[in-house]
């Protein structure tokens, strides 16, 4: 956040209260990643282990099916890849993926 976006003391709620629930969704932690999870939809059996074990609420599930990985939040820990029984997720070095993009 740049300094000019910072609000003055008259503009913010008192007491340090944050009134917008879950607004950290606007804060992206994807930049922390050194490895990126790549999912092979063919191999995925939608067991949802990746989803339940993700520390960053980054696995997107719709109707009980994995839709993808939200790279805005994914920090690249690789738990999903390690716990995937179908070996459907590969961790690729971020630098290599980015270079290919």
């Amino acid at each position: 956040m740049s300094t000019n976006e910072l609000k003055g003391w008259k503009e913010i709620p008192i007491g340090g209260v944050i009134v917008e629930a879950g607004n950290s969704a606007r804060y992206e932690t994807g930049g922390w990643r050194t490895f990126r999870p790549l999912m092979d939809g063919q191999l995925c059996k939608n067991c949802l282990f990746c989803w339940i074990y993700c520390p960053d609420s980054a696995i997107e599930v719709e109707d009980g099916k994995v839709k993808g990985i939200n790279l805005r939040y994914c920090k690249g820990c690789g738990i999903c890849a390690r716990e995937c029984p179908a070996k459907a997720i590969q961790m690729i070095e971020e630098a290599k993926v980015s270079a290919g993009e």
Binding site: G22, N23, S24, A25, R26, Y27, E28, T29, W32, R33, P55, D56, S57, A58, N70, R72, Y73, K75, G76, C77, G78, I79
Partner: peptide, 13 residues
């Protein structure tokens, strides 16, 4: 919500 700043791979979250 995502966007929290716990370490990658944190057990607590």
């Amino acid at each position: 919500a995502g966007g929290h700043r716990l370490c990658a791979g944190c057990g607590a979250s």
